[in-house]
């Protein structure tokens, strides 16, 4: 904790968890789906579902999907902006219990028809936790440069990818491996202290058994 956690962040109101955090969940979904989606369906859980209209949680998530930051004054007009920019959206209230009371599940479809699912929770003070990418349960908060590396579960994958990071002097702050089943779909989530550039992302994508690498820049 530092002084700017107490006097800060600069944000658009009314609620750090229901507005600022919601923008950030949208922003992560945009990054994972590789830019502005053509169509999104957003399922809201818990307190998000109950109070989203009054807190502007819907506008906040859409703003994030359009690439805005939590202090962007256009957030309150984001629904109209999305229509202007050709991003269709739909909100659904879920009656189901979620991992956390302030949770949104965003299903984004791009212009090619490719679908991406991102689920995140707003855990307080505008901070978030991403807990699902497509079919895989994950856990990261967007504070670092974050690399998502979906791949086929085979031996040597971690070494191959982390060696590429080491070659460029990039230090790993946190790293986790998730897989659906042995020999099945898997995902590495790597959070780094240093910036990662697109060139490195291409190098990682060239590794055998890696399907695609997604870079998420810090959202705080």
């Amino acid at each position: 904790m530092n002084v700017f956690d107490i006097i800060g962040p600069i944000m658009v109101g009314p609620s750090s968890s229901h507005t600022a955090g919601a923008v950030r969940i949208g922003k992560i979904a945009r990054a994972v789906s590789g830019g502005q989606p053509a169509m999104v369906t957003i399922e809201l859980y818990g307190s998000f579902a109950q109070t989203y209209k009054g807190h502007g949680t819907d506008k906040a998530i859409i703003a994030g999907l359009l690439g805005m930051a939590p202090d962007d004054e256009r957030i309150k007009d984001s629904l109209e902006l999305a229509r202007d920019l050709g991003m269709a959206f739909k909100f659904k209230k879920s009656g189901n219990k979620a991992v956390h009371p302030n949770t949104a599940l965003i299903a984004a479809v791009d212009s090619q028809g490719k679908k991406t699912i991102v689920q995140g929770s707003s855990v307080g003070g505008g901070r978030i936790m991403v807990n699902r990418i497509n079919e895989i349960n994950v856990k990261f908060n967007g504070e670092y440069y974050t690399l998502l590396v979906p791949h086929h579960d085979t031996p040597g994958m971690i070494a191959a990818v982390t060696n590429l990071l080491a070659d460029q002097g990039i230090n790993i702050a946190e790293m986790n491996m998730y897989r659906s089943q042995r020999g099945g779909e898997a995902m590495m989530v790597i959070e780094t202290d240093q910036a990662i550039n697109e060139e490195l992302v291409s190098l990682i994508e060239a590794v055998n058994s890696v399907k695609k690498a997604v870079l998420i820049k810090p959202i705080y």
């Binding site: 800060g8 658009v12 507005t19 506008k59 004054e73 309150k76 505008g126």
Partner: peptide, 12 residues
């Protein structure tokens, strides 16, 4: 309350 820009101090 009107979704304008503020500084959380300590909260919104």
């Amino acid at each position: 309350a009107c979704m304008g820009r503020i500084v959380a101090a300590p909260t919104a």
